[in-house]
């Protein structure tokens, strides 16, 4: 009883706070400060049609690097935390097969899903989307393949190598920016190209493809761990 009334009290104070915020909210009428700078000079400085990508990859590139590091940290903590003992690792559980509909559909859909994921992260500087979204789409293809065939083993080494290599190249491209252009993760050491083309915006498509591969590999690694931990007794 006391607990319920305390919860009600907390929620009521939140409602009070939100009510005042909501009532005093006035939608903005024009871009302010840094956003105006991005809108005005973003296309000329970075060359990316998608300004969100310009902000994420170039203006706030260091932030994105931290974000990728956090994902890596999550994947490694989960790997460490769900580590199986030797005895469990060798155990073989044969799952019941899934329905034929799912198996057949997955054979057709998985290549298309992978292709779509790659499309999303390669076109990250032109259309809505980018590395993180594309990586998540690729990982969803892997979820489908696990669901269609629960006994499938994901190749752990391939994931590890894709993740490490793309992570290292991300940092190398960032450092190249220091020497060849204005600063860390500056994309202008490759020519900016024609605005709106696929090969434009300097290093952004390369950086976003690397991020996409890395995120896809990390999420697949997490999924692989979850799947394997079924063996734990």
């Amino acid at each position: 009883m006391i607990k319920n009334s305390l919860i009600a009290l907390v929620l009521a104070s939140f409602v009070f706070m939100f009510y005042h915020l909501y009532m005093s909210y006035e939608p903005k009428t024009e871009l302010s400060g840094i956003a105006a700078h991005y809108a005005e000079h973003g296309a000329a400085e970075v060359g990316a049609a998608n300004l969100v990508t310009a902000v994420v990859v170039t203006y706030r590139g260091f932030d994105t690097m931290g974000e990728v590091t956090i994902l890596f940290l999550t994947a490694s903590i989960i790997s460490f935390f769900l580590k199986l003992s030797k005895k469990d690792e060798e155990k073989v559980i044969v799952h019941r097969g899934t329905s034929e509909l799912l198996v057949t559909a997955s054979q057709i859909l998985i290549p298309i899903i992978f292709l779509f994921g790659i499309y999303v992260f390669i076109n990250g500087h032109l259309t809505p989307g980018g590395g993180f979204q594309g990586g998540a789409i690729i990982a969803s293809g892997i979820v489908l393949s696990i669901m269609a065939n629960p006994n499938r083993e994901i190749n752990h080494h391939a994931i590890l190598w894709i993740e490490s290599i793309s992570g290292i190249f991300f940092v190398i491209i960032g450092i190249l920016g220091i020497f060849l252009a204005g600063g860390f993760l500056d994309n202008r050491f490759i020519s900016l190209g024609e605005f709106g083309d696929l090969f434009s915006a300097g290093a952004i498509p390369i950086i976003y493809s690397l991020i996409g591969l890395k995120v896809g590999a990390e999420i697949s690694n997490i999924l692989n761990r979850y799947q394997k931990s079924q063996k734990e007794s």
Binding site: E30, L31, A39, L51, A54
Partner: peptide, 12 residues
């Protein structure tokens, strides 16, 4: 462009 787009920073 300044008068056509919403703020990109919160989205990022």
């Amino acid at each position: 462009v300044l008068n056509t787009i919403v703020d990109p920073v919160p989205q990022a």
